[in-house]
Every structure is written in C-alpha cells, then in structure tokens.
Design a protein around this nucleic acid. Structure first.
Length: 286
DNA sequence: GTGTTTGTTATCAA
DNA sequence: CTTGATAACAAACA
C-alpha cells in the first residue's frame, strides 16, 4: 500500500523527469482520468515541460510548464515506473501476479518524454487516478490535508488540536484520517501506535498529553525509517524504478500476528479496528 | 464459493 | 455545519 514513505520514494526516483518535455500521452483506461476529458489532458500535456515533482500526503504532484499540474494517487495497487531505455523493463523481486515487465496488461497510462524516457502507470485494481488541475486550484485542494508529519508544521499543538475534533473515535481511525496527519495508512499507523505503546482501539479522548507527545515522536520516527528503507513491499508496491522496498523486514507489528513481540516476547494479536486489519501487542500497548 | 486485503468517498444517522 | 460508523469500490489470492 503506497503510504507516505512509498510515495516519497517514488518522487525521489522520478526526479530525472524534471526538465524533460512530454512527447506522448497514452491512455488505455479513460476512467482513471479526473478533472478533464482525454482531449483536455492531451492539450495540457503535449509539449509541456516537467517543472517539478512534489508530494503532499499520498499524492504525487507533477508541475507542468502549461500552468497545470498532475495529481497522481496510487491508492492500493498503483505503480509508477520510469524506464530510461526503450522496450520492456525488468521489475524487482515482488511484482504483481507474476508480471515482471512494463508495459504489461495492468499498464493503463503511459507518459513518453523527449530523450526516450517513459513513465508507466500500472494498477491491478484501478483505484488510482491521474487528476489534472490548474495552478490556481492546486493549493486549495492540497490544503485540505492535515500537516505533513516530517515537516515543521506537525507540532504537538497541531496534533492536539486535530485530535480534539475526534475525541470519541479510536486513535487508529483518527490517524487514518488524512486531516489529522497527512500520509499515514494502515501499515504505518499500526507501527507508530506500537512504538508509542498505545492500543489502536483507545478512544482519542482518553489519551494523556504524555501519550500524545510520544505518539507524535513515534510517527515521525517510523515514517523516517520507512523512507530510509524505501517503503514496504509485501503486495504490489515497487519504487520508481520497479524495485522493492525494504521496510517489511524491519516492521515491528504489522503482519506479525502469531509471532512474538520484539519487546516483551508475548504474542502479537490481530483484530479489526476502524474496519481495517490491526496488529498490536496486548502487553506493551496500553 | 467465501473471506480477506486497504485508500478514499458516499451515505446515513445523530 | 460537524463527527462517526459502515459499506462500497475493485481484483487477486488462500
């Protein structure tokens, strides 16, 4: 699942696109386009130069010279793979359904750039999307997200304020809400709550100031580790060059149900919280 | 055939 | 208007 560390890794990998001019835009599934018709996309993309790549929450933003930006969301199974040679490309060790090259039957959109560089968007489940948005509307859309957890605006006070609104729900549900903190998903929420010694089903209103401080610290540490490891590959995630991430072997609780807690050696439990598979240590987490 | 996987949004209730 | 809870979407896999 592409969460903040995965999208951040892809953004870094795709930096070579900056400065290149778009020569071709191929769409096999128009349903994945948002914000305009195919011909509108073509009009704004063809001949445009890539000005910048950035990330907000789990969204990759490609800024174009035409005054428009592409907002790309990978949702659950989306992949963005850049290829600098022509022809197929060998993907790393953890591909989807045995597919190891691009383009493949799950490649729904292709962007070709001058110089022979190609960007492939693959998505088995087709939840992901490419949205085109004008310069003046971009900030308004992105400002709906909560603070970036690895940036300065993710302060203790901002976290307290954003949690206050959700006092009656579980801390897991509150953290999955992108308005509380931007970029967390199921894996890194479980990881962060384990590191903060807080049970996922705790009601937000019962958390002490000390626990919220610890939680903020844990979120920052876990996400930084996730980025350093280049993300988590246990299903379809690959980085911008089709290679797997390394966080899976470093994980603390996610997917470790039935195994022993790294800290107290008791058995990790799996249950359902906020409608999602949830892993925690019943001894360490209070 | 059944249940499970999850990011986000629609929908309904309060 | 808000928040909370749940279903729905989609496709592969055990």
């Amino acid at each position: 699942m592409p969460e903040l560390p995965e999208v951040e890794t892809i953004k870094q990998d795709l930096k070579p696109l900056v400065g290149l001019k778009i020569s071709k835009f191929i769409v096999r599934r128009k349903s994945l386009l948002r914000g305009g018709s195919l011909s509108f996309f073509e009009k704004k993309l063809h001949g445009a130069r890539v000005i910048n790549l950035s990330r907000r929450a789990k969204v990759l933003v490609i800024t174009l010279s035409t005054g428009y930006s592409l907002m790309i969301h990978l949702k659950m199974t989306g992949q963005l793979v850049m290829v600098e040679k022509s022809g197929g490309y060998k993907m790393g060790g953890h591909p989807i359904v045995g597919v190891k090259t691009v383009p493949n039957k799950f490649t729904h959109i292709e962007l070709h750039l001058l110089g022979g560089v190609k960007l492939y968007f693959n998505d088995v489940r087709r939840f992901g999307y490419w949205q085109i948005v004008s310069k003046d509307k971009l900030a308004g859309i992105l400002n709906k997200y909560g603070p970036e957890p690895l940036a300065k605006d993710f302060t203790f006070n901002s976290l307290v304020t954003n949690l206050d609104r959700r006092a009656k729900t579980t801390i897991k549900a509150a953290l999955l809400d992108q308005k509380t903190v931007a970029g967390l998903g199921n894996i890194y929420v479980d990881e962060s709550l384990f590191k903060a010694d807080i049970r996922p089903m705790r009601r937000v209103g019962t958390l002490t100031q000390t626990e919220i401080k610890k939680l903020r610290h844990a979120i920052k540490q876990i996400l930084a580790l996730g980025v350093k490891a280049r993300g988590t590959s246990f299903d379809s995630y690959v980085d911008g060059r089709g290679q797997v991430g390394n966080y899976w072997s470093k994980r603390l609780v996610y997917g470790r149900d039935g195994q022993l807690c790294k800290r107290c050696k008791n058995v990790i439990i799996k249950t359902k919280v906020a409608g999602r598979g949830t892993h925690y240590c019943p001894i360490c987490q209070k």
